[in-house]
Design a protein around this nucleic acid. Sequence first.
DNA 1: CTGAAAGCGCTTACAG
DNA 2: CTGAAAGCGCTTACAG
Lengths: 368, 368
Amino acid sequence: MPGCGMLASSNRFESNRFDGFGVRTASPETGYTLATISDVARYAGVSRSTVSHALSGKRTISLATRQRVNEAVRVLNYRANAGARALATARTMILALVVPFTPEEFAPATLQYVLVVTQTARSLGYDVLLVTQEEGADGIVRVAESNLVDGVIILDVKRRDPRADILSDIRQPGVLIGMPDGESTVDCVDLDFGAAGALLIDHLAERGHRDVIFLTLPDELFAQDLGYAWRFRSAALEQAERRGVALSMVRGLVDPSERAEALGAALDEHPTATALLVHNDAALIDLPQLLRQRRIEIPRDLSVVSIFSEQFGKMLALPYTAIDTASTAVAARGVELLVSRLAEPERPVVHEFIDLVLVDRGSSGTVA
Amino acid sequence: MPGCGMLASSNRFESNRFDGFGVRTASPETGYTLATISDVARYAGVSRSTVSHALSGKRTISLATRQRVNEAVRVLNYRANAGARALATARTMILALVVPFTPEEFAPATLQYVLVVTQTARSLGYDVLLVTQEEGADGIVRVAESNLVDGVIILDVKRRDPRADILSDIRQPGVLIGMPDGESTVDCVDLDFGAAGALLIDHLAERGHRDVIFLTLPDELFAQDLGYAWRFRSAALEQAERRGVALSMVRGLVDPSERAEALGAALDEHPTATALLVHNDAALIDLPQLLRQRRIEIPRDLSVVSIFSEQFGKMLALPYTAIDTASTAVAARGVELLVSRLAEPERPVVHEFIDLVLVDRGSSGTVA
DNA sequence: CTGAAAGCGCTTACAG
DNA sequence: CTGAAAGCGCTTACAG
């Protein structure tokens, strides 16, 4: 198809006739070319710098000129070329989001983070580029060093996270959604999973529970050094010790059939337990059935408290008193922190916890 | 912090001394600037065009020169600026992925599509930019007209999808992961949900089942005009008619507590049914419990066949004979189609179905 | 309030 | 086999 290449615009500037602009042709078959800032300037009868300033608002433009520019933009359907703008400003308005791919972890929560990060970023003027865990640290370096992104968001932060170290090697700022151990030099935000574990123990202790089953995440997630897993468990164990609560720890399993069986066995082995503390989304799927099978009524026979995301709870109608993991708030705040650092690179590093909210759904009773 | 701005590189080219290159300084505190192709050219003692060609391999370069360039790239840690490259080539090597945000739909499948799309794109040299459904059609137009992306991938395709129409308004090609009604002018790939519905009916009919409960997706998803929902249901109904199978349709519900109750009621209301056909992820969560409660044994008392993704099945250990939705294959193929269209814009449009695979897990028995 | 010009960092005909 | 130069489409000091 000779002579109709999409970039065949070499002589677009030769003519002064207004039909020479790079507007769309009627037929998409013939190809068309997008209007550039030069087209707009010519149509409006002003300079390119005036167009640029009129659109950015970075200097005062007379009303008449501004209107002419806006009209030209409208007629020519002009939109600034992202690459050219990025080159000129050294900002891409794109954030990288490093998405975890942890088969042992539960998908609904992960998707929620991805969606909220993207929406929040958009509301602040940024787009989101995905970097898969598969590509890992290399991916972060790649998109950073090629100046493809202005900042990096990391999910599923580990206590000792190599990806956090990489952030200090690159030009762009980053934010951790999750809390690493020690004094991170990068902004981070998370739910306070330690406080959450302690709070749930307190909740049970105050109601007289002294014999509690603690159903944790599968070992595979602890092996991945995930901060939220470790912090919740450690704090729950410590607080139980402090409050004189006997905590029988039961490890969650990844395999779904073994998973339910192990949980059932744990229930059977601890007939004296008056409460169940659950930090394990997968187990929450199995739990209702297991309790019903055993004719265990909540909270009469057993109190149950847990921690899960609002979305997950709604999906399954989980009727348990629980702390909301607040994934929406955490993810949104993470993006805000990153964007604020972009605006003010020298502001002090913040390590922020989102407020804990315990939703009482009546699944915890009092022991005499 | 005067004099240490990250872009303070204006006189980088004045000096011929080799310490003038834009390599990183030891301390990240002082800021640093990335090496450009000019730095590499100077270090290697060649022209910028030679560097460019040596790296792209687009023309033959003498071994000696190539080695010098590679060494310079290594020493200066050079990586091409994405924006500059995009501007010069009119290609960004980024694909837009329009992610659905359908609360009624099940998250695990959606995340799987996102992950596979991203990984496949990477393996073909592309990055993936997320466009949320929230921003909708405007988002597609925005990233396309600003030349932020080279192509667009659309998930959760509707039978009559306005986003598919938008694809013909933009310069970039698109691909639909899902099948719209009619002769789409854009490439699309999907599982053949129509054939899937018919195949499962055949499977039951061949085993003598004549009285079958058909548990469908919630009305909310049909209301969204989702192609896979409609096609599966229509085909199942038609094929049942053809094979003389009485199909009692039970609508899935979104609310999780009503959902299980309604399904239980349906089971009770159809005691003569010998089989259950399920196209509803959420219902599959509730099903094991409901069947156990009623002491219904599979396949002795009831045959169950379904359709779900491998990932979802694994998560719940679903022991049902079922068609695999093959989300991995579908998503990967979608990206391949888009990239192949990028390479060959004039190739004929393809509407492709991924092969159906029915996995027999022994949950369907024979009726005398 | 506005314009001419330089520059961002690449690629790619063009010329040798 | 290699280089000088133009050009991609923006923004932003600089000058008036």
